[in-house]
Design a protein around this nucleic acid. Structure first.
Lengths: 188, 188
DNA sequence: TATAAAGTGTGACCTACATCACTTCAAAGT
DNA sequence: ACTTTGAAGTGATGTAGGTCACACTTTATA
């Protein structure tokens, strides 16, 4: 059976065994317990993470200490603070584990090296980036045009697994509504 | 004096004269009058546009016919429906000119050809895509955490030129508030 | 240059959602 | 096993921003 990362990459580009081994040699593994951070505000983010097990959230704290969720990520999802990772500026966000997690990560330097030596990986990441951008655009659209209830229903439809794994108050924060409002939405 | 597009590309990668000529040969020019469309709902978008003159908006119409603005673009900005362009699915949005415009555009096919023959252009577009994604992420952040007034002030600070060129009701639509509310924001 | 159409401001009123306060229940941590 | 912590529901009340209606002004267009 193929490595999960290989399957993931082969959704976009095809690889020989050696090529995949070469890619994999640029990654490292890390385990984290629930509630541990992989990114904290103020740091320069040097790694991009791919989740092999568990579930994490990236979020921003406002002046009042209120948490606003940018992204959830589960198995086979990438997560990092792209602003910090790409521009090499201090992070404005936190990423922490909602469950015990295992990640494969690649550093900034290794990603550069890998793309230099394997041109196709540029295509892989370009495509990921394009798709990520499209997803964000659709989220903006839904924030602009839809009510809380509509956004809730859409999320439930698109990611039902999420509702099994993460507390509703975090879903509320992702949708941009209060816990209380989200709780009242079910009965509508 | 260097071509404006060359300057734009050279912010990211450096080019020889021949290389730039080669790049430019993959683009075409088009002029459009105010109110004319470059993208309409339902079509398969085959071109990515770079504005050399004028100003345009991309927007989505909801069931009630209300317009939600995704993006404004002015000189030296790229615009297209990336979802349709990248995935080759029918567009959900419109793009039209707010002033008489001139564009350079590149087709899907030419973009592919160009990147195959000039590896560096992959880097250029990858970077554009990454930065675009970061900008969208920050817009989501601001929709989640800030009031209408705060979003208004931030936009005014970041893009003061916009307020000279586009009607306030469109700015309202971009910010996700009603015209009337935007109008009352000034006095706050 | 007349006439229509679009942009903008402002008052009156409405509503979706926030905030605060309290309760219940389940799940961790020691 | 006990106790602390967090998740979740719900009532009462507040408020930002929406909607509707109308006036006035600026910009297109026949």
């Amino acid at each position: 059976m193929k490595h999960a990362l290989r399957q993931h990459i082969e959704e976009i580009i095809s690889l020989t065994d050696q090529e995949f081994e070469f890619i994999l040699s640029h990654f490292e593994t890390i385990k984290k317990r629930k509630h541990q951070y992989i990114v904290q505000e103020g740091e320069l983010v040097k790694k991009e993470y791919w989740i092999t097990k568990g579930c994490a959230k990236s979020y921003f704290l406002d002046e009042k200490g209120k948490e606003h969720i940018l992204q959830f990520a589960m198995e086979q999802w990438w997560i990092t603070d792209y602003e910090s990772f790409v521009k090499q500026v201090p992070s404005k966000i936190y990423i922490d584990c909602l469950e015990d997690c295992e990640f494969l990560y690649i550093t900034f330097e290794n990603r550069d090296k890998l793309t230099e030596q394997m041109h196709q990986m540029e295509r892989f990441w370009a495509k990921k980036s394009k798709f990520g951008r499209i997803a964000l655009q659709n989220r903006i659209l839904s924030l602009l045009k839809s009510s809380a209830k509509e956004r809730y229903d859409l999320l439930l439809e698109q990611y039902p697994q999420l509702f099994q794994r993460v507390p509703k108050k975090l879903i509320a924060s992702y949708l941009g509504v209060s816990r209380e409002t989200l709780s009242r939405l079910d009965s509508k």
